[in-house]
Computed example of a mutant assay.
Amino acid sequence: MARAVGDLLADFDAELEHELELEKSWNVAPTDAVPIVLERLVDDGLKRQLHVARWGLVPSWAKDPSGGARLINARSETLLEKPSFRKAAVARRCAVPADGYYEWKKGEGKSKQPYYVHPDDGGGLVFAGLYEWWRDQSKGNDDPGRWLLSMSILTADTPTAQSSDSVFDELTALHDRVPLPMSTETMEAWLDPREDDAAGLVDLVRAGAHDAAAGWTLDAVGAAVGNVRNNSPELIQPVEGLF
Rank of each mutant, 00 (worst) to 15 (best):
G109K: 04
S152K: 03
A14S: 06
L154C: 03
L171N: 04
G124A: 11
S152M: 01
D121Y: 03
S60Q: 12
A224E: 15
F168V: 03
R40P: 02
D197T: 03
K87R: 14
G124I: 11
Y116G: 00
A198Q: 08
G123Q: 05
P144F: 03
S76V: 08
A199D: 13
W147T: 10
G241F: 08
K139R: 12
A4D: 14
Q137C: 04
A2M: 08
D44H: 07
A207M: 01
R48I: 07
S150P: 01
Q113D: 00
H175V: 09
R206P: 01
K110W: 14
G140H: 02
L9S: 02
A209I: 03
L191I: 02
M1G: 11
Q113P: 01
F168Y: 02
P97N: 04
V52L: 13
R3S: 12
A4E: 12
R206L: 07
R70I: 05
D44K: 12
T158C: 07
S152I: 01
P193D: 05
A95H: 05
F168R: 09
I36H: 11
G200Q: 15
S66M: 05
D120E: 08
L16C: 07
H118W: 07
G208K: 04
N227I: 12
D196Q: 14
W55G: 15
S152D: 03
E17S: 13
L125S: 00
D157M: 04
P181C: 08
V239G: 08
Y116S: 02
M1T: 11
L9Y: 05
P159V: 00
L242C: 05
V202I: 06
G67L: 06
A161K: 12
E17Y: 04
L50E: 05
E188Y: 06
R177S: 04
V28D: 12
P181T: 04
D121A: 09
W55D: 15
L71G: 07
E21K: 13
D13N: 09
Y131M: 00
S166E: 12
L57G: 14
T158P: 05
P238A: 06
L180G: 02
R86Q: 13
A161R: 15
A89H: 13
M151C: 15
A213Y: 00
R206G: 13
N230M: 12
P233L: 10
A14N: 02
G67E: 08
V178E: 00
N230C: 09
N231F: 09
R229D: 15
A213K: 03
E195L: 08
V37D: 06
A199L: 08
D32G: 15
R146A: 01
R194E: 14
S183I: 00
G45V: 06
A173C: 05
V221L: 06
V126K: 11
A213W: 08
E23C: 11
L57W: 13
T186D: 02
V178H: 05
K82D: 11
E77N: 10
E81S: 11
R86A: 12
A223D: 14
S164H: 13
G241E: 02
I236E: 10
T186F: 03
A199M: 07
F12S: 00
P119D: 05
G208H: 00
R86F: 09
A198F: 06
L174T: 01
V42E: 13
G200S: 10
E77T: 07
P159N: 01
G124T: 10
A91W: 14
R92G: 04
